[in-house]
Design a binder for these strands. Structure first.
Lengths: 119, 119
DNA sequence: AAATATACATAAGAATATTATGTATATCCA
DNA sequence: TGGATATACATAATATTCTTATGTATATTT
């Protein structure tokens, strides 16, 4: 009912790891560029993950033991597939649950549960 | 059904202004310390706004023209009541709508709309 | 009288994003 | 066949927004 614009960047902040972990659970192994495109598609361009945010995040998740990497060469170009570890599955659950609970709290705090037209 | 713990700080990031603006719409003029307590109460300690985050935010909102201030002395102690301006009302609407839409997108992205037990 | 609560404020540091830049290969199409 | 665009990785400089620590001061409770 209104024009779709990207969300202001503050909102996405803090949810990137959760998005990545959940996507990997749903779609199996994925590579960085694929993740950015999948999120863009699934959200109709509302959430666009920048590479400058994604790659450091993937490296951090790997270092934390949540992801493992598989290098694959497509022709001469390297592609790094990321997979959830067992620990990554746990981290995902915790983060998704926490985010779900947080959003519930926010809906209450902002009176979004009552039916209303445009606020 | 599970123990309530404070949310990890990344999540709150980006929603503080929205919370403050919305609270002022619901409760009229409020002062900083009152805002921290009200949010703490309403969320059963799940969201605790720190003073280091709140006061700079209030100053920023004031500078942006969203809030005006009324100084009141309680005995010798100063208390600064903040009120929404007309522009603040608009900013609030925009931010609440954006956050509501963002949360809807996140629920879709994280498959939270389907009924399920503990994830 | 001491501890806690109220009430403001700012500075140093951490976390996490954006923007810009860099490197390189692959594909489309005119 | 050559230029634009897409694919695919990466990092550095910068911005934003928080936490934690610190500072000042008054009021209330025990």
């Amino acid at each position: 009912m209104y024009i779709c614009v990207m969300y202001s960047s503050e909102l996405i902040k803090g949810t990137l790891k959760t998005i990545v972990l959940n996507l990997l659970k749903d779609h199996g192994k994925m590579y960085g560029y694929e993740i950015t495109q999948k999120v863009k598609d699934l959200t109709q361009d509302k959430i666009q993950i920048t590479e400058g945010a994604l790659y450091p995040t993937l490296h951090a998740l790997e270092e934390h033991g949540d992801l493992t990497v598989e290098k694959v060469y497509i022709g001469r170009r390297v592609r790094k597939y990321y997979l959830l570890t067992d620990q990554g599955m746990e981290t995902r659950s915790e983060r998704v649950n926490e985010l779900a609970d947080f959003m519930k709290t926010m809906r209450f705090l902002l009176d979004l549960d009552v039916a209303k037209g445009h606020v």
